[in-house]
Structures are given as C-alpha cells and as structure tokens.
Simulated assay, not measured.
Amino acid sequence: MSLLKYITAALTFIILIGFGQVDAKASQLLKEGSAGSEVTFVQDFMKKLGYFETETTGYYGPVTANAIREFQNDFGLKADGIVGGETANMIYNVDTMAHIVNGEARGESYEGQVAVAAVILNRIESNDFPNAISQVIYQRNAFTAINDGQYRLLPGSSSYQAVKDAFLGWDPTGGAVYYYNPSLATDNWIFTRTVIKQIGSHTFAY
C-alpha cells in the first residue's frame, strides 16, 4: 500500500488535498472522548516519536491529549491537545519525511538520518525550492527513494526520531540543500555544488 493510501485509510478524519495538505471538519476532530482505529493510529504514531509511552488503546484520554500537546509544542502548533486539521497535516508531513529518511539513509548513522531530514527543512527555507514539505519531497527527481520505490518501505522508529530532531533544530549538515553518494551519483551537475560536509556515504552541499 502506498503511503498516501495508508494515510487515507488510517486517518479517516482528514481530507487529503493537493500535495498532502489536509483539512478537517469540526465534527471529525479527534479529542478527549474519541475512540476507534484513528485514535489507535495517532497513539502509535506518537509512540514512534517518544510522546506516548504506554500501550495503545484506541481511546483518546488525558494521556493521549498530553502526548498531542507535546507534539504540537515541538512542531510549532497550537498546543490544544486536539487533532484538528493543522495537527493532522503535520502528522502527514512527519510521516512522509520519515519515509524519505528511511528510504534514503536507513543504512547511515543516526546523524546521517537527521542530516537527510534537515536537508528537506533547509530546502523549504531556500528560495530555490518549494516552501511546503510535501512539495519539496514530491518535486520531480528530488529524491531517489521516490523513484525507486524505497519510499514505500515501513520506517523504523529512528527515522521518526531523526525527523523530530531536525524539527527541533539539529542540522548536522550546516545548511545543506543537496546531498549525494559520490560513488553512486550519475549526474555530473551535482559535483559542481559547494561541499559542506561528509557524513557517512553522503556528501552534503549547497
């Protein structure tokens, strides 16, 4: 199952539009008292990020609400403990980034995984790239994992943690907007970029 289909099936309380941007009807918000598979999905997602440290129950109680508040605080959202449109959209974005990190750097060190996530965020800040996470990821030929299908592999918890650390400000690359494996790169253009740092098998550049 593709990521988009997976998210659509799991987060039935959101509507995916455009490049993964989401909106939510007021009657479909997840909040204290909610129950069902959507709540289980959110709890499992928060567990991967280290916010939900108990067993998933499918019931949205105070523990889940507190986990959501921590997530919202760390990711720059209104910390109301409710999964509405903005929070659902961020969940989608983080999940998408984790799939890229896993597809591009699962054999790298943890620092190397954070570095890939940081490049995505650096591109959003650059005038040379789109300003939305999903648009950066789905930009044509931007990431090998999209083209070769590795994007569809299920990420481990380290991929999610790497995305979280990048959002919290860790950028091992020093501002890179490109990375490549010198032994595998076939486009000579990438070798014209200014190298910043080597992390594992990846060269990071701008």
Results as ranks from 00 to 15, higher is better:
Y6Q: 12
Y6C: 03
Y6H: 12
I7P: 04
I7N: 07
I7T: 10
A9R: 14
A9P: 00
A10K: 13
A10D: 12
A10F: 00
L11H: 09
L11E: 14
T12C: 03
T12A: 09
F13H: 12
I14H: 03
L16T: 11
L16D: 08
L16M: 11
I17M: 13
G18R: 08
G18L: 01
F19Q: 04
F19R: 02
G20L: 10
G20A: 02
Q21N: 13
D23W: 03
D23C: 04
A24R: 03
A24L: 09
K25D: 15
K25M: 13
A26R: 08
A26G: 03
A26W: 00
S27F: 00
L29P: 00
L30I: 10
L30Q: 07
E32R: 15
S34G: 06
S34D: 02
A35E: 13
S37N: 12
T40Y: 11
T40F: 08
F41Q: 10
F41V: 06
V42M: 07
Q43Y: 05
Q43D: 03
D44Q: 05
D44L: 01
F45P: 11
F45N: 07
F45A: 07
F45L: 06
M46H: 07
K47A: 15
K48F: 12
K48T: 11
L49H: 02
L49D: 00
G50S: 10
F52N: 02
E53G: 08
E53M: 12
E53F: 03
T54R: 15
E55S: 15
T56K: 12
G58Q: 04
G58F: 02
Y59Q: 11
Y59L: 13
Y60V: 06
Y60G: 06
G61S: 07
P62K: 15
P62Y: 03
P62R: 13
P62V: 10
P62M: 07
V63M: 06
T64W: 07
A65Q: 15
A65P: 12
A65S: 15
A65T: 14
N66R: 14
N66A: 14
N66F: 05
A67G: 03
R69W: 07
R69E: 15
E70W: 01
F71D: 10
Q72I: 05
N73Y: 07
D74T: 04
F75W: 01
